[in-house]
Design a protein around this nucleic acid. Structure first.
Lengths: 252, 252
DNA sequence: GTGTTGCATTGACCTGAATCAATGCAGATC
DNA sequence: GATCTGCATTGATTCAGGTCAATGCAACAC
């Protein structure tokens, strides 16, 4: 067994000191296919691990990086959930995304050379820090690392366009739930029952809805037996129906 | 003088045969800073030029690349305007963006390894084709090229998040006009008077509005002396006021 | 226990933008 | 010139989702 619960939350045990579980983590990480046996020789693997720093724990509300800070590194979420968001000059928040263990954040900071958003822990979070200058240098030496970076960057373009369309509230929410489900599945977590770690207001903001609408739609989904909700715990009980609702948004 | 009108449209003259103007074009292109004297030695410059193919002309409605096609190359728009869009299985269109001369398209195709959207010419269009395998190989050899690619990819993440927020119709439209203006300016075109090459319906779709709303808001802007509109020609006469409207969307 | 705090939910009402339905208008075609 | 065709505009009406205002409820402090 490992220190991971099925909800992706960290048990009271410090994974930073737990080098024995390193590989298990890496297998779920965004760089997994670049780091792991998958074709990389030992030197390359070591070089990648050399430039990684483990950072944490962060707690609910803690800031991983802050908008405007000089860009120096990208981060992979190791444990917990991170939200990224922008604030405008009047303090209006725009949630850009929620990031699960194994996902990469900070890629949008490369060009402006400063973080364009805040990254905020939603629960207990550990991250891996990849110095970007070091990573780029490594990428020129190891084509697989370069390719992995291109892939991660390219995928993020698609992701941030995903919810850009004009869709009804129930379509957006169905897509949101299925998206999370798929991402949990991809990292080896239970895909059909998980915790919505973030408050309703954050889901609403992300989906351009009011928190009240999120509440009402979740309630309706439950009444229609598509899901079961209990506070922040959710279980998807009719994914086919959800998929049908979300089909305009999730085309893949 | 060159073959470029102030609206970025091509005069009846074939630039493909016009090698003499190559440099002038490159200076406005997304790869400009990688190709041009800016630090690159002649060999590098030549290698980059080697892998570029000039393609065109395309005409209004022609397809530059099609959703689902195997990914093999990214493209820089050389002349004209290109829109990118996705169609869902029921044929509903979602416009992802409009791309001016000097801008790169196809970067979102790297990861899925196939184009996730259609790229469609809105008027007479010429593009430069960069074979991506060749470009990646060059990138491992020339760090500046790799860095330029990282920058382009990273910038696109930010761009596709730009209009993702929840904003009123007039804020979105003001941001749209200023965004175009800034991009024309960055490429050396007149920033305050230009042609909205795309039909109203495309602007509306892109901004998640109805075409009627676009029409009404443009009209209101004109009544408020913020702009002058005549069909698809538009002139920004009070950018300060537009900027104030758009301030929640354009934070940079 | 009793507050208090911070979300989440629910209901009543309102509104911005969509939709529906003409009408206008310029450029192509005959 | 007359007729089409494809947008764009304008007005009347509708409605999805927002806003406002309570109320519920669990975790925590005292």
């Amino acid at each position: 067994m490992s220190q991971w619960s099925q909800h992706g939350r960290l048990q009271p045990h410090d994974p930073i000191a737990d080098d024995g579980d390193e590989v298990h983590f890496c297998s779920t990480c965004a760089f997994g296919s670049a780091c792991l046996p998958a074709g990389l020789d030992k030197t390359a693997l070591n070089e990648l691990h050399m430039l990684v720093g483990h950072v944490g724990p962060f707690h609910d509300g803690d800031i991983v990086f802050r908008s405007g800070e000089r860009f120096g590194a990208v981060f992979a979420v190791r444990a917990g959930m991170v939200k990224t968001r922008q604030l405008d000059d009047e303090g209006h928040e725009q949630v850009l995304g929620f990031h699960l263990p194994g996902e990469m954040i900070g890629l949008d900071a490369i060009h402006p050379a400063k973080y364009p958003c805040d990254a905020i822990a939603l629960d207990t979070v550990f991250v891996c820090r990849f110095s970007f200058p070091a990573l780029s240098t490594l990428a020129t030496k190891i084509p697989d690392v370069q390719g992995r970076l291109f892939d991660l960057l390219s995928a993020d373009i698609g992701k941030s366009a995903r919810y850009s369309g004009d869709h009804a509230a129930d379509e957006r929410l169905a897509a949101f739930l299925l998206d999370l489900s798929g991402r949990y599945a991809a990292r080896g977590f239970a895909p059909n029952a998980f915790r919505l770690v973030m408050p309703r207001a954050d889901i609403a903001n992300f989906l351009r809805l009011a928190a009240e609408t999120v509440s009402r739609v979740l309630r309706r989904f439950q009444d229609q037996n598509l899901i079961r909700v209990d506070g922040r715990e959710v279980e998807l009980t009719d994914k086919a129906a959800l998929r049908k609702l979300a089909r305009h948004i999730l085309r893949d």
